[in-house]
């Protein structure tokens, strides 16, 4: 299915408070142009992101989910993102098994100073999801 040009899709972002949320803020303050499909949910640490958050979002209406935390070795809580990396990698590999395109889900690391990188991540991921189109197009979603 082709992307819906000009129409916003629903993308959920789980961002850790200490790095990626800061990075998004930096991008905002610097007025970097970004697509507006992303809805950000701030979490204390990427280690707080239960892979089931992602599943729940995808099953209940999100077209894409982005998780972003501090770079490995930089987690505010030392190792939250190390655990996250394993869990999210597990999920990434499980999604296609249940018939969900793994491209609808992305996890990455963006620091508070990387406003530019954040802009890139959001733009690229949004484009990727748009290429796949809406997830629930064929089905009546429960809203």
């Amino acid at each position: 299915m082709s992307g819906v040009a000009g129409k916003e899709l629903r993308i959920v972002g789980f961002l850790c408070n200490w790095c990626s949320y800061g990075g998004a803020d930096t991008a905002g303050v610097a007025r970097f142009k970004q697509p507006t499909d992303l809805r950000i949910i701030r979490v204390p640490c990427s280690g707080r992101v239960d892979p089931l958050f992602v599943v729940k979002a995808l099953l209940t209406g999100a077209d894409g989910v982005l998780v972003s935390g501090c770079h490995p070795r930089d987690c505010h809580y030392t190792d939250g993102n190390f655990y996250a990396r394993r869990r999210l990698e597990m999920l990434k590999r499980l999604l296609p098994f249940i018939g969900i395109d793994e491209k609808r889900f992305h996890y990455t690391w963006v620091s508070a100073s990387e406003g530019q990188k954040w802009q890139q991540v959001v733009t690229d991921f949004t484009n990727q999801v748009h290429k796949l189109g809406p997830m629930h197009a064929k089905k009546e979603s429960e809203g």
Binding site: P72, K92, H106, D124
Partner: peptide, 18 residues
Amino acid sequence: PPMYTFNVDEAKIKEHKL
């Protein structure tokens, strides 16, 4: 159990490109 632990450098987990 693998979800109870981690390696700082994971041999098999590569960063995903967009």
